[in-house]
């Protein structure tokens, strides 16, 4: 899937590259690091450029290096994609609140698809349980319980609200990031350059939906469970000290497939499609169902629409 436009001009700032090289050499001299092969690789990672500043050749090299690294780690042949966005596509997501039964199948499908850390546990989707009959109180997120553990769901008198990244059109996290390590792609997905994030966690403070998660230590995933179908902006394994987030399974959706959570949902409550296509499922539900977005008053303009199917 790796196709690089040879016509795009590289705009690497030469002065900057020179500076980095000089700085690298200086640091090596100071710390007395021998000019061994592995030391060179370390510096390559340390002074890697921002994803959007990579020239096609540099991207090639990076992909090769990362594929080798991840293959070695997982013992599988890893395919690291850099599939770009499609023309005329703006992704949207629908979730049928009247259908969701709170079974958390989506949570674990997401964990497996997106190589989320198993220990410490990172879940990109959080399913909140609310009291149906709590009429005298306002229903607010403080009343939601993500830790419910029933024998069977749906439990009597409860309803469920799964929350993950809302892929806002006016994303607070992108505005907050001090290093432009997170940005919105043309198809509307907010992605991260995990190699550029400095781990300041300002985006976590800025996100109104608790959708961003920090790797508090080196994430652990059993080698045999690593999903080898990866995207460089999506589900490749993360390292400690960086923030990660839902990318609507960019490694799948950019190839035309549904997200893992859509396919995992046993009640078909999850819908995904192209907002610019008038015949898509997502447009149908927006035009025919009652939809709402979370925290609309913040004008983050989520592309994640909750709706009532009945």
């Amino acid at each position: 899937m790796k196709k690089i436009d040879k016509n795009t001009t590289a705009c690497a700032s030469h002065s900057r590259r020179k500076f980095l090289k000089a700085a690298g050499a200086g640091a090596a001299a100071l710390t007395g690091v021998p000019a061994a092969a592995n030391a060179k690789i370390d510096f390559e990672a340390l002074f890697q450029k921002h994803f959007r500043e990579l020239s096609p050749e540099e991207l090639d090299r990076l992909i090769e290096r990362l594929e080798k690294k991840y293959s070695k780690r997982s013992g599988k042949e890893v395919k690291l994609g850099v599939t770009g966005p499609m023309d005329d596509v703006l992704f949207g997501y629908g979730l049928d609140v009247s259908r969701c039964i709170g079974c958390r199948r989506c949570v674990y499908a997401c964990v497996e698809e997106n190589n989320q850390s198993r220990s410490p546990e990172i879940h990109w989707i959080r399913v909140l349980e609310f009291e149906r009959t709590d009429v005298l109180r306002r229903i607010d997120f403080e009343d939601g319980n993500p830790f419910y553990d029933h024998e069977k769901v749906p439990a009597e008198g409860k309803f469920y609200l799964p929350v993950a990244c809302q892929q806002c059109e006016n994303p607070e996290c992108v505005k907050a990031c001090p290093t432009q390590a997170t940005w919105q792609e043309p198809d509307g997905i907010i992605v991260m350059d995990y190699d550029w994030c400095i781990g300041c966690r300002y985006c976590m403070a800025a996100c109104p939906y608790g959708a961003r998660h920090f790797n508090w230590t080196e994430p652990q995933i059993p080698a045999e469970e690593i999903n080898p179908n990866m995207h460089i902006l999506g589900n490749r394994p993360r390292e400690h000290g960086v923030v990660e987030k839902c990318t609507w399974c960019i490694q799948r959706t950019r190839q035309g497939r549904y997200t893992a959570c859509v396919e995992a949902c046993p009640v078909g409550a999850r819908k995904f499609g192209n907002l610019l296509d008038p015949d898509s499922e997502i447009r149908y539900l927006m035009e025919n169902k009652r939809t709402f977005v979370l925290k609309a008053e913040l004008d983050t303009r989520p592309k994640f629409f909750y709706f009532y199917g009945d």
Partner: peptide, 13 residues
Amino acid sequence: FRNPRPYPSRPLP
């Protein structure tokens, strides 16, 4: 970023 992403966009299949 003048070179926004190193991949071209693709037509919709």
